[in-house]
Nucleic acid binder design. Sequence first.
DNA 1: AGCGCCTTAATTGCATGCAGTTCGAGGAGC
DNA 2: GCTCCTCGAACTGCATGCAATTAAGGCGCT
Lengths: 253, 253
Amino acid sequence: MAPRSANKTAAPSDKVGMICRALRRAIIEQALAPGAKLPEDSLGERFGVSRTIARHALGQLAAEGLVELRRNRIAVVATPSWQEARDAFDIRIELERLVVRQLAGKLTKAQVAELNAHVDAEDRARDGSDAVSIRLATEFHILLANMTNSPILVRYVSEVAYRCCLTLSLYSRPHSSECAINEHRAIIAALVKGDEAKVMSLMHSHLDSVASRALVAPAPQRGRDLLDILAPYAEESEGAGRVVKLSKVVRAR
Amino acid sequence: MAPRSANKTAAPSDKVGMICRALRRAIIEQALAPGAKLPEDSLGERFGVSRTIARHALGQLAAEGLVELRRNRIAVVATPSWQEARDAFDIRIELERLVVRQLAGKLTKAQVAELNAHVDAEDRARDGSDAVSIRLATEFHILLANMTNSPILVRYVSEVAYRCCLTLSLYSRPHSSECAINEHRAIIAALVKGDEAKVMSLMHSHLDSVASRALVAPAPQRGRDLLDILAPYAEESEGAGRVVKLSKVVRAR
DNA sequence: AGCGCCTTAATTGCATGCAGTTCGAGGAGC
DNA sequence: GCTCCTCGAACTGCATGCAATTAAGGCGCT
């Protein structure tokens, strides 16, 4: 039962695939924050390929919604609106309910072990950086999806999970992810027990709580602009109480 | 309420987008059957662009699952397995239930009119080619998704609907699509009435019936190979009862 | 005749070059 | 000092060229 059933659809040599994976990871670990610029040249240079390849990878990522491509403009890491975040979570809930419904009571011992191992890893990472915790939590869900052996489902769950991850980094506060870990354990238990209804409602409430923990309010209304983020710092700037050159900052973004 | 809220994620100039749209349409209308070869050169020539663009379009379509890309090989129209078809329909059901749940009782008059006009068009097309009927039926669902104003949902529903359309062309028989049209009308009515539960179950059974009408049995087991398709014709070939040059045919595929 | 090997034409993978557009810094004007 | 405008650098859009791989037809062999 090889867990390697990934994407059949990705044959563009895999230089492209490699860059995609690298960027995806950088994005969800917030090494690349939303809005970060991704010039083709730099990417190509960084990964030792030509612009052509970098460009192709960006296209791929754009199709997944992680990157925003505007004509004649530098590609940037996507900055989903609050509404889009909400939508993504709604879709995610349905898709993942489907996942666990298919999986309930059908997991092999090896698969259960793999899941447990992953959650253990999540546990161990609690002391480390938030970024890694978030990534692992996301990957738990993808691991689950993988076990359905449905490439389409895997692709959609992955995509939407990454997207949600991205929005979490935008709208959520410091993060108390311990509970998520317990919820993951509970889901595994219910899956093993094979109680379809139970595991579906567990997954539902799990994602719901993640979403609401993160998306409590459309706080930074339109989210993206630095204005809100910089507000607290404005007072401390060397000048008078006046807020510094906002127009400049806005354009800088 | 401009229905133009399509994809923010598609800015690669739109030469790419145009080719994608053309190919998608050709595929779902079965002008391009599953397995059909799609050489970059020919595509580029046909659309008056260079291979670079054609290639990019193919990549896009591959990400959507309509095209299969194998390293160093000519791209072909995807040939989903029966299992993949089943999976696609499962996902589609969940996504479209989400669509109508969001839409129930929230349609504007203009939107209702648009939907009715579309179904009328479906009705009118009943005499025409099957291909057009199928496309219109698919587009009804996409039109519905569009009205949610959720770009992500639109994208996923579109993708999965196209995929399903592709599999229908593979596994389904002549087609009795009249019932589908009535079902579409029933869905509109329930949406207007605003009965969430009703419309969700309607959509569920609608898609379910489409799926089971098409996917009755995993008849051509692993589907793709010409062997099964050619079996009935083998007898009639000019030679003895012997099946003709199988090895050659297999390679030809 | 049928089957397999080998040569050649087709096709992809990738990089690079050129033209057009955008970005951003610096200077003129208020 | 602040804003607006202008111009050079940076970047993208796209086509084309070259090397590597595959697909296909022709040859001799059985």
